[in-house]
C-alpha cells in the first residue's frame, strides 16, 4: 500500500472519468449514456477513496458510499425514464426526446 504514489490512482480516476465523458458525448442510445454516467460517478468515487487513502482517513470511503447512494437513486429513476421513452417514442434514441426544443 505504501508503494503506490497517490498520483497514479488519480491518473486512473482521470482516465476512467474521461472514458465516461467520451461515452456520454458519443453514444445516442440512452442505455449507453446511463452506463457512461455510471462510469463517471465510479471514477469520482475512486478519486475520493484514493484521496482518503493518501491521508489515511475514513472520510474518502464515506464520500464513496454517498456517491454510491446517489448512483443507485439516479439509475432507478433514469431506468424508469428509459421505459417511458421506449413506450412513448418506440425508440431508445435520446435525440427523439427533444420536444422541449432545448
Amino acid at each position: 500500500m505504501a508503494s503506490i504514489p497517490a498520483d497514479y490512482a488519480l491518473y486512473l480516476a482521470l482516465v476512467l472519468f474521461l472514458i465516461g465523458l467520451f461515452g456520454v458525448l458519443l453514444r445516442r442510445n440512452v442505455i449507453f449514456v446511463l452506463m457512461s454516467l455510471e462510469v463517471m460517478m465510479n471514477a469520482c468515487g475512486l478519486a475520493f477513496v484514493s484521496a482518503g487513502a493518501a491521508w489515511g482517513v475514513a472520510d474518502g470511503q464515506i464520500m464513496f458510499m454517498l456517491i454510491l447512494a446517489l448512483a443507485a437513486a439516479e439509475v432507478a429513476v433514469a431506468l424508469g425514464l428509459v421505459l417511458q421513452l421506449q413506450k412513448r417514442f418506440r425508440t431508445l434514441d435520446i435525440d427523439s426526446a427533444s420536444e422541449l426544443r432545448g
Binding site: 500500500m1 487513502a53 489515511g56
Partner: peptide, 9 residues
C-alpha cells in the same frame, strides 16, 4: 508526489 499511508482503513 504524495505516498499513501501504509495503514488500511
Amino acid at each position: 508526489g504524495t505516498e499513501f499511508m501504509s495503514k488500511a482503513v
